[in-house]
């Protein structure tokens, strides 16, 4: 009933080939086809940011992108962040500063912060800049303060 498309993409460094429905979005493809269920779906209209992944290094709402649009792209998800069993420094800092509670928004927050870390290119970041970067990720539990403090510990003025 719907067009199927063959796509080839890289997910967390590994090549993936798949046949997908034209109407399947990237979040559903990652979650249900590849069983990478760490990417969460919170609103399906591009506001909450829970489904944030990196596409060719840039953050993207995987609920607003079709799976076929990922053809030829490099996708990074939460499952690829911790290496060799060790938490990424961003993940460890979030835990230290209680930057997560229920954890549903957390994968999207981590991906947003990884993009921020790359974009800052060694610059010291201020609280306003960090709050602006996180403003596309909704969290109902933490009031954001623990996330902001985690980022400040890693990239703020006192740590360089």
């Amino acid at each position: 009933m719907f067009d199927a498309h063959d796509i080839t993409l890289t997910v967390n460094g590994a090549e993936v080939r798949a046949r997908v429905d034209a109407r399947s979005n990237l979040a559903d493809f990652l979650r249900h086809h590849l069983r990478l269920t760490g990417t969460h779906v919170g609103c399906e209209h591009g506001v909450c940011g829970a489904c944030t992944v990196l596409v060719d290094g840039a953050s993207a709402r995987s609920c607003l992108m079709l799976a076929v649009q990922a053809d030829g792209r490099r996708i990074e998800t939460i499952e690829g962040v911790a290496r060799d069993g060790e938490l990424h420094p961003i993940q460890a800092a979030l835990s230290r500063h209680h930057g997560l509670q229920c954890g549903y928004c957390t994968p999207g927050v981590v991906m947003t912060l990884i993009e921020l870390e790359r974009d800052r290119q060694g610059r010291v970041l201020g609280e306003d800049e960090i709050r602006a970067a996180l403003s596309g990720n909704l969290c109902r539990c933490t009031g954001y303060q623990g996330m902001v403090d985690a980022a400040l510990e890693l990239w703020g003025a006192n740590t360089e």
Partner: peptide
Amino acid sequence: EDGVLLRGGAIFLDD
């Protein structure tokens, strides 16, 4: 609770 949540390995209802 944190480790599995941070790694994206936690099982929520839809997972």
